[in-house]
Design a protein around this nucleic acid. Structure first.
Lengths: 220, 220
DNA sequence: ATTACTAAGCAGCGAGTAA
DNA sequence: TTTACTCGCTGCTTAGTAA
């Protein structure tokens, strides 16, 4: 959606056009938007074309109401601003399901991790992790997360090797509860690993390439 | 502020740039905004020019943080969306102080009105109204108001004439409590009349031409 | 008064490229 | 890799104007 159309839609919404028809001329709208009458008129036509408003053209003025589609767009925008200012104890990611190469299963079966998961998270994970690939740029959000803490799982040693400490965050994937596991060290990876008492891939009917929505909840 | 700059600022904020420095290249930003690297770079320069972000240019990437000015712009935007979706029991106006021609005083001194004000609003108004001129286009908001009700003051007759019924709405002008009085009949006027137990013009140090913010609170 | 067309001008876009 | 310049081209804007 073009930014100037969004602005126009918001202006109409502020005049009450979400729930009522609003009487406004292209000239008046132009004044509100600080642009010309011609441009305002064109904006209204464009919004009409993409079915975000309905218009009743009279001989003078026009009655405008925002449609369901238009209201959805505004709500999405509103939710992003809430994300910025209100829900700073939540961090959201979009990503898509990918397969690991069995390392998830290997790690989630280590006694040293499992015992701590039981103690600190309250469950033993289903063997294996659900891997979600996120956009590289979202590592900025991951950095936020690491600063905020999370539930620490300590490192431990077996006779063969050392298993590094990890940070856990309560999260939801497509609204289903689970836990995100991030290696405490290591640089940023574009894969988020999800553990849960259940086999999430089956429970959520997910296959590789599916788009998912992840929301992480910060404790403090 | 140009709409596309606002969108860019919002995108940066979603990555956490309000409270943290965010590491991002113009190419990555371009991908987020679905535009070209050159355009993203130009956007960042423009935002920098108007002091809405600070940049630390490294040889790779850049560290970006939103400034106080930038955060203000985003908050204003957020507040408008709240207006649309949350505070639909509030209606806000901007306007400027104007002088009436003494009619306010004439009306607010009529026994027929004063007695009803005392009974239904709980105070006798200071004689005279504080008049605020609003943008003509905001009559759309006034129409919303009238549909929602308000406190009705009934018409009454003296031996000389009839005084029409009016609708009262609890409101704040520059955060100071008072009551907006709208004639029940009559077409839309671009003047809002404010009554209060106090002499508001003095209490708020207002003079003609001053910009004020009015918020009307709907009961139900 | 309106809305909205045409036409011309100009701002913004992005390919190419330098540093 | 980066950022950001130039410059040609596209598309948005607006003056003029018809209906």
């Amino acid at each position: 959606m073009k930014p100037y159309l969004l602005q126009t839609l918001k202006e109409l919404a502020l005049l009450g056009a979400v729930s009522n028809r609003v009487e406004i001329s292209s000239h008046e709208l132009a004044k509100q938007l600080e642009t010309s009458q011609q441009t305002a008129s064109r904006y209204l036509m464009e919004l009409d074309n993409v079915q975000m408003i309905t218009r009743e053209l009279g001989i003078k003025k026009q009655l405008i109401q925002i449609t369901g589609i238009g209201a959805e767009v505004l709500k999405e925008e509103y939710s992003q601003y809430r994300q910025i200012f209100e829900l700073s104890n939540r961090v959201a990611f979009r990503g898509k399901i990918v397969s690991g190469m069995g390392e998830g299963k290997y790690y989630t079966e280590q006694r040293g991790y499992v015992d701590q998961f039981k103690e600190k998270l309250g469950f033993a994970p289903y063997p294996g992790t659900l891997n979600v690939e996120i956009e590289y740029v979202e590592r900025n959000k991951l950095r936020l997360l690491k600063n905020y803490g999370g539930i620490a799982i300590d490192e431990f040693k077996t006779k063969n090797r050392t298993f590094g400490s990890v940070l856990c965050f309560n999260a939801k994937i497509n609204n289903c509860i689970g836990v995100i596991v991030l290696p405490k060290r290591s640089h940023y990876s574009n894969i988020l690993e999800f553990i849960s008492p259940h086999y999430l891939r089956e429970k959520l009917h997910l296959k590789d390439g599916d788009e998912v929505e992840i929301v992480i909840y910060l404790e403090k």
